[in-house]
Amino acid sequence: MEAMDYIISKYNYWMYIILMMIGFYAMIAKKNLVKKIVGMNIFQTAIILFFISTASKKGGASIPIIQNGHGSATDIINTAHYVNPLPHVLMLTAIVVMVSTFGVAIALLLMLYKKYNTLEEDEIISILKTENGK
């Protein structure tokens, strides 16, 4: 029962591991280039899920926006009332990086399709082999 509690207390982390491995597997094992990019996306979002999980606080912590902020600047703010803002900041940056990588990967994909007229890695490799054979 204790082990069960232990596992449940971290279920978010176990889930991110599962997601990350789904993405990782797609990135290295799938032959289709689009599937690789889908895997890349899942892989990166899993890391973002991990970071956001580190930020959360149990016990009624609210979103990191100071409530009734206008005028109460001198009040002491209880840290336990707000979730940790730093991982959110980092992950905003990471999402941007993610979408940039995604755009670059898609651009390369279109270049490859124009050149080989297929998106399967093994077909591209066999085309390259026949080119070499000539």
Partner: peptide
């Protein structure tokens, strides 16, 4: 993420992940 209190990240993910990158 909204449920975990990360509203900014959730907003970004909604515009980027579910919106722009699907369009791409």
């Amino acid at each position: 993420w909204t449920e975990m209190g990360a509203v900014d990240v959730a907003f970004t993910e909604a515009t980027v992940g579910a919106g722009i990158s699907t369009a791409f």
